[in-house]
Design a protein around this nucleic acid. Structure first.
Length: 296
DNA sequence: ATCGAACCTCCAAT
DNA sequence: AATTGGAGGTTCG
């Protein structure tokens, strides 16, 4: 086993960040050796465990890490985001300020674009536990197998592996109508008609245009991919939760406005860090709902 | 351009 | 115990 740590110099909330509905493969586990709780998952197809203490992010791996792998973790967790600046720029009103205060340290992640594309195609008309189940099932059935001291695992399947799987077997493991979208997206990737990885170097607008050409990807899913994997902090996914917040706080609720209009309106209003506003408002509204459920 | 259905599947709430 | 409705949307007509 190898242990590494990264000093935290800014607000960070690892737990909220990993389970806020942007990533679907992290799991909370008890580590028998250290008798501590860790989050187990994958970064750049390497399996690792991470946890947060007061001052550090701790990493535990079964393979040796060099500076390259450590900076992959920093990049994935966006530990280098300057939260002071971001908070200052998005503190437009009381509602946002209170959400920031409540979920101090909640971050956007910088995930793998291919995996993010596929998982958010699967998110359509679906709920989080089931998205997790589908992502797991795809990995188990079509991803490359591996084994380390933590045990056996499966990587998230590559475009080739999903293309080989084909629509029917994706349907068989429960993707439903999403099976043909995932299979079509995999085919496009194999044929090199799309390359989501290269979009990290392109503009928001251009990348959005490219993404919505992919079957199963509309404005909402595209904005999720842009925000959670392609480094576009101005992205603003409009889903039911965000619509609830916007209608309750910002927009006259009687108006019926198309989602893309709502998005551009929000981006105009909230600015280049709209994605962070989105994440805090979304998280706040969703957990608020949960707390109501608990009290019943 | 805009609008409402239909879509796979699971599961919680009638 | 069987049925219905909705889930972090997209596509098709």
């Amino acid at each position: 086993m190898n242990n590494y740590s990264i000093e935290i110099t800014q607000p960070y909330d690892l737990h909220q960040t990993l389970y806020s509905g942007q990533a679907f493969r992290w799991e909370y586990i008890e580590d028998t050796e250290s008798d501590q709780s860790w989050h187990q998952g994958f970064i750049k197809n390497r399996r690792l465990r991470i946890r947060q203490s007061e001052t550090h992010i701790h990493i535990k791996t079964t393979e040796k890490y060099t500076e390259t792998e450590i900076s992959d973790v920093i990049s994935y967790l966006r530990l280098d985001d300057n939260m002071e600046t971001i908070y200052a720029k998005i503190s437009n009103d009381k509602y946002i300020i209170s959400a920031i205060k409540k979920y101090q340290g909640l971050h956007i992640l910088r995930q793998d674009p291919w995996e993010t594309l596929i998982t958010f195609i699967c998110s359509s008309n679906n709920n989080i536990p089931r998205i997790r189940q589908l992502v797991n099932s795809m990995s188990l059935n079509f991803g490359q197998k591996g084994k380390d001291e933590f045990g056996v695992f499966n990587l998230f399947p590559s475009s080739f592996e999903l293309y080989d799987a084909g629509e029917q077997s994706l349907r068989d493991i429960g993707l439903g109508f999403r099976a043909k979208y995932v299979s079509a997206a995999a085919e496009l990737a194999v044929q090199k008609k799309i390359n989501v990885n290269e979009l990290i170097n392109k503009s928001y607008q251009y990348s959005l245009g490219e993404l919505i050409k992919i079957p199963g990807v509309g404005d909402k899913v595209a904005n999720c991919i842009l925000l959670f994997s392609l480094d576009k902090l101005e992205a603003f996914p409009v889903d039911v939760w965000i619509k609830r917040v916007l209608k309750e706080v910002y927009i006259n609720k009687k108006n019926k406005i198309p989602d893309t209009k709502i998005r551009s309106w929000a981006q105009e209003k909230f600015g280049p860090y709209s994605g962070y506003v989105n994440q805090y408002l979304f998280h706040n509204r969703r957990l608020f709902e949960k707390s109501i459920m608990k009290n019943l």
